[in-house]
């Protein structure tokens, strides 16, 4: 991967280059279109949308839809807006990301630096668990959460997300630690350093890039999850995605498209911010980990 950022040796003529730029710009319009639609329509009055002006800039600018989506729109039966659900998501995401990342780091450390018989098979089992269709665990999970007294709670959702997130976090840390020089670990062992000391003093200080990858990945996946939220959340632990879907699908009353768009942006903002602020560390960290696992 040392050549990872080299330029291609391919040379292209002027006409071809113009064409390439044209195609690239056209596609960027395609990718930006839904974002444009959401943003412009979230700040205009409803009649401007229903009157055929979805693609137009707002004639009357209003933040009313945003306020309504946040604090007074009808979600299910309560006119609470999306704000309580936003906090539900935060309360679920923060512990779930933290726990799964810590466990992933420890697992990656053990699986690369304290290898034992059959460790590859164990890792394979963990990895496969990342890709299962979650439909296969929905029924027993509902039973298990009930038995544990966690049905319909945020803690239950945290548990679910930790369990099904460990595979990915372990994968990231394992690939990253695999290229960390094992001689350093052996030298520290000879000097009498123990298991946790080595992890704490030697591996952890250089784990920044992969921790960023793990945190971004987990944050995005858990924030955006709908299936587990819809299946296991109770009335007061529903995450943002479930609430947004309830808002948009509500069959009664006037469809307030502008409020729907504002709500959709609210649901997208945290992950979009993370992507814009830290996206480049994500790619860089992934590159560092994928040198050779």
């Amino acid at each position: 991967m040392s050549v990872a950022s080299q330029d291609t040796a391919i040379r292209t003529g002027r006409a071809v280059r113009v064409l390439i730029y044209l195609v690239l710009v056209l596609f960027s319009l395609f990718y930006l279109l839904p974002l444009y639609v959401m943003v412009v329509n979230s700040v205009k009055p409803l009649d401007e949308i229903t009157g055929g002006g979805m693609m137009n800039l707002p004639q009357v600018f209003t933040i009313e839809p945003w306020l309504k989506a946040w604090s007074s729109a009808q979600i299910g039966v309560e006119p609470t807006g999306l704000s309580p659900y936003f906090w539900n998501s935060i309360k679920m995401v923060v512990p779930a990301v933290a726990i799964s990342t810590v466990l992933g780091a420890l697992n990656g450390y053990v699986l690369t630096k304290w290898r034992f018989k059959y460790d590859t098979i164990l890792f394979g089992l963990m990895l496969f668990a990342c890709f299962i269709p979650f439909q296969i665990v929905l029924i027993p999970m509902a039973r298990m959460l009930g038995l544990m007294g966690l049905a319909g709670t945020t803690s239950g959702l945290v548990l679910v997300h930790v369990v099904y997130g460990i595979g990915f976090t372990t994968l990231y840390f394992r690939n990253y630690y695999a290229v960390f020089p094992t001689e350093l670990i052996r030298a520290a062992q000879i000097d009498g350093a123990g298991f946790f000391q080595i992890f704490w003093r030697i591996l952890l200080p250089s784990s920044g890039p992969i921790a960023v990858v793990s945190v971004i990945w987990q944050f995005t996946n858990i924030w955006n999850d709908f299936l587990f939220g819809a299946s296991f959340a109770g009335a007061d632990s529903q995450p943002m995605t479930v609430a947004l879907n309830n808002l948009v699908q509500a069959s009664h009353g006037v469809k307030e498209y502008n409020v729907h768009f504002a709500g959709a942006i609210l649901a997208a903002l945290p992950t979009l911010l993370v992507y814009i602020v830290a996206g480049r560390y994500f790619v860089r960290g992934l590159m560092a980990g994928s040198v050779k696992g």
């Binding site: 990718y31 955006n224 995605t241 947004l244 942006i265 649901a267 979009l272 992507y275």
Partner: peptide, 9 residues
């Protein structure tokens, strides 16, 4: 950037 969004959005 669409990768960062929820399918619901």
């Amino acid at each position: 950037y669409p990768m960062a969004l929820s399918f619901i959005v």
